[in-house]
């Protein structure tokens, strides 16, 4: 046995030993090409925010709504009529401001109270996970996303209807400062962005700035 072979064995074994044994039970990596779960959930939340509005607007102008449209209208009452959607922190959450975990009961209470106290807010409706999930299921067409999502992944939210003439951006910005809020979406702005060129699209999404 030559020394160079021994030195090689020894050096490589020593280098390999510097890689520690697993102390965590690593999960199998997700299939290539799919987004990280957190992002998918954020996308799901955004999809809910946008598509439900679409449903509501379709349902609105019909003077004698068919049963289907009426059903869609019910969903719209809970979320689609919103001018501003205030999403609450989930655990885990992809948003920076949610590092402390899901929104607590106190935080929800506080958000509700502050929003209701605003003069530019006409109504505040709470949307729970189940409703959010049902809306999402009804509107989402991406079957992979649908399969990967459960009610637990959906964020709770407060849906705000503003008084006529109010500035939704101001309300959205103010709501995004509250603890327990993950992000706030100006729904009208999002809707308008769909028809705007990329260069003139406005910021419609206001992530929370931390607890």
């Amino acid at each position: 046995m030559s020394t160079i072979e021994d030195r090689l064995r020894d050096a490589m074994a020593a280098r390999a030993r510097t890689v520690p044994d697993d102390d965590l039970d690593h999960a199998l990596p997700a299939p290539r090409g799919s987004r990280p779960r957190g992002l998918a959930i954020a996308a799901a939340a955004l999809a809910v925010a946008t598509t439900i509005v679409g449903v509501a607007r379709l349902a609105e102008p019909s003077p004698d709504p068919s049963p289907d449209a009426r059903e869609a209208g019910v969903a719209a009452v809970s979320s689609g009529w919103a001018d501003v959607s205030v999403f609450l922190c989930t655990d885990p959450s992809p948003f920076e401001g949610c590092r402390g975990g899901a929104a607590t009961a106190w935080e929800k209470e506080n958000i509700s109270r502050v929003l209701r106290a605003r003069r530019d807010v006409k109504t505040v409706t709470f949307e729970d996970r189940r409703t959010a999930f049902e809306n999402f299921r009804r509107s989402e067409t991406n079957s992979r996303l649908l399969k990967a999502t459960t009610a637990e992944d959906m964020p709770e939210s407060f849906r705000l209807k503003l008084v006529p003439g109010a500035d939704p951006q101001a309300a959205a910005r103010a709501a995004s400062d509250l603890p327990g809020v993950s992000n706030v979406v100006d729904e009208g702005c999002l809707r308008d962005n769909l028809t705007r060129a990329a260069e003139v699209q406005k910021q419609c999404n206001f992530p929370d700035r931390g607890r």
């Binding site: 030195r7 090689l8 050096a11 490589m12 020593a14 280098r15 510097t18």
Partner: peptide
């Protein structure tokens, strides 16, 4: 360099590091 950090270099020693560098 097959020894990626100063810490690793110390852990494995200079003689082994020479072997890894040559490798």
């Amino acid at each position: 360099d097959l020894a990626d950090s100063a810490e690793t270099a110390v852990l494995i020693g200079e003689s082994r590091r020479q072997v890894l560098l040559a490798l």
